[in-house]
Amino acid sequence: MSVLVFADAAHGKIVKATHEAICYGKAIADKMGSSVTVLTYGNVDQSALEGLGAFGASKVLVHRGIEHVDDEVMTKLLAETAGSENAKVIVFAFDTSGKSIAPRLSARLKAGLVAGATTIPEIDGAKFTIKKNVFSGKAIAKFEVETEQKIISLLPNSIPVTNDGGSASVEELNTPVDQGRISVQEFKAEGGDGIPLPEAELVVSAGRGLKGPENWGIVEDLANELGAATACSRPVADIGWRPHHEHVGQTGVAIRPNLYIAAGISGAIQHLAGVNGSKTIVVINTDPEAPFFKAADYGIVGDAFEVLPRLTEAVKKFKSAN
């Protein structure tokens, strides 16, 4: 018996959300007295695959013949592998590939899916009880799954990553695979060399209070000094001051960094829906009545044009002293 974890390897890279999914799989495997098998694809370095052992994988299966995630191809391969590995639990990261493959696999295997889980399951015989956020982070629901196979996709930044330096055995899969029915014509990278927003542990975000796109220098300076990603409120992306992938909130990306600094954002409920899982929230706003202060850990009533540069200086000083 095993816990099977799908590791996306888009552009040859396995990202933090997947490391978390492997650690999560390991926690379940420990409870069930089984072990973790990871399924991945493409050109990831052999050493990086062995290194997945550090997060709890015993065995890594890699299909080098697949270059790109196609949800139909991957669903079929995962279903076969779940069979051959006798996997009762299949784990994904709740990221773009997890969102397209996990539900497909659930419908194929008639295996109950908890999409966006935030807790390690309580296990009672064949019954798993798992929590996930609902109502855009305004509440938590407890799900029960009793199907023979179970699928869980893990919300990023929900559990700590542990790394014990171990190593996994790597096997190549050579099963013939079909061509997918969707063909990829082009990939347009977004965000340049910066840290991708969903992965970032520190985020500096700004809203309409910044008055215009030409003023984002002070936001970027602070982000650079901290090693943070930048984000923005929806109107700012809608008017085109910032690229649309930076828009966080209900209709944008949902993030849960360790630190979210919001300058010149009022804190509308739809904005909060995308950031209320952040561990620590700092709000900078000229208006002491801004609703965001109610959701903040630290608040500064002040002008972002003065406070942000001052904060950047303070971070600089702190870094040179530590």
Binding site: S106, T129, V134, A141, K142, E144, A296, G299
Partner: peptide, 21 residues
């Protein structure tokens, strides 16, 4: 394939700490 057996609200945030700008 699944069922919701209960709900809870997230833990309340402690009071915001105000800092001199």
């Amino acid at each position: 394939l699944t069922k919701v057996v209960g709900y809870e609200l997230p833990a309340e945030k402690g009071a915001v700490k105000m800092i001199d700008p």
